[in-house]
Design a protein around this nucleic acid. Structure first.
Lengths: 145, 145
DNA sequence: GCTAATTAAATCGTACACGACAAAATGTTA
DNA sequence: TAACATTTTGTCGTGTACGATTTAATTAGC
């Protein structure tokens, strides 16, 4: 039994588990809005800036087109976004918020506070939050290459 | 535009991205062993203790049977584990390492060091590692309810 | 201006995740 | 001991992830 193969010693297993559990915790908040978590982050990107190319969203969300295209197609079917072929460059696809997608922002603005409020005890001390976020950002930037 | 809906301010988006990128970084190391990341953590649990029930693995990995059962079935098809019906309690399924699954530990023991070694710069300062892991554990424990 | 290389999205196949449900075995209780 | 509840695992459907490949449009080179 090698120590470096113990689950306790795995950074990645913790990240994997924490990510899954946080996403699960979002579900009851997003379900009333008819959203999954990946759909929610696509909308957040579009609420920040509407009318983005598929490639813009890929870079912003660090997802590839083979994930985003089907996701955006489902979102278009649900009437959350509109996809239009680029005029200047016919290879591009422009993703825009529909009226419904734009209106959802008003309901979604309560979600982050509800998320934090649902925790009985605070899992992160306020003074630990920034170092924690910085470490995550360092990790992400390193792995992005 | 609500500040709390900006991607920069999302703890969850960072966790989601970091988890995906770390899992991607494992791929080139696990592919030669014929493993995916979820299969690797199942094996880590079994290398720690062989002969576990499906329910034991569910609790250990914090995954439900609807994820683990198909995962274990694929691993059995690949000859990594053996699933046997419980003798005393016919509802149970015991998961054991095959000879091949047991032997893989020797190759896998290099994986964690290779992972760290593949980073050009160190994304986590040594003195930040423990606080970071503790915060992740707090988060996981809070969300486990 | 015609062909080759490049780029932007989309498609395809496989493997997770997970809510909802089903099935089978065991416990419980009147 | 027969009906019912509980436990353990499995199945099903939908939605991601992602490597590999394809398609369509644009650009570069000659």
């Amino acid at each position: 039994m090698y120590d470096q193969l113990k689950l306790e010693n795995q950074l990645c297993f913790r990240l994997y588990t924490a990510s899954r559990l946080v996403t699960q915790a979002y579900r009851p908040l997003l379900e009333p809005l008819g959203l999954t978590y990946p759909q929610y982050i696509v909308l957040m990107a579009l609420w920040e800036r509407d009318n983005q190319l598929v490639g813009d969203l890929c870079r912003r969300l660090m997802l590839d087109t083979n994930t985003l295209t089907p996701l955006l197609q489902r979102m278009e079917r649900q009437g959350l976004v509109v996809r239009t072929r680029g005029i200047a460059d016919g290879r591009q696809t422009l993703v825009s918020l529909s009226k419904k997608g734009l209106a959802l922002e008003e309901q979604a603005k309560e979600v982050p506070a509800c998320m934090v409020g649902s925790w009985k005890c605070n899992p992160i001390e306020p003074e630990q939050l920034m170092p924690f976020l910085n470490t995550l950002d360092n990790l992400i930037n390193t792995l992005k290459q």
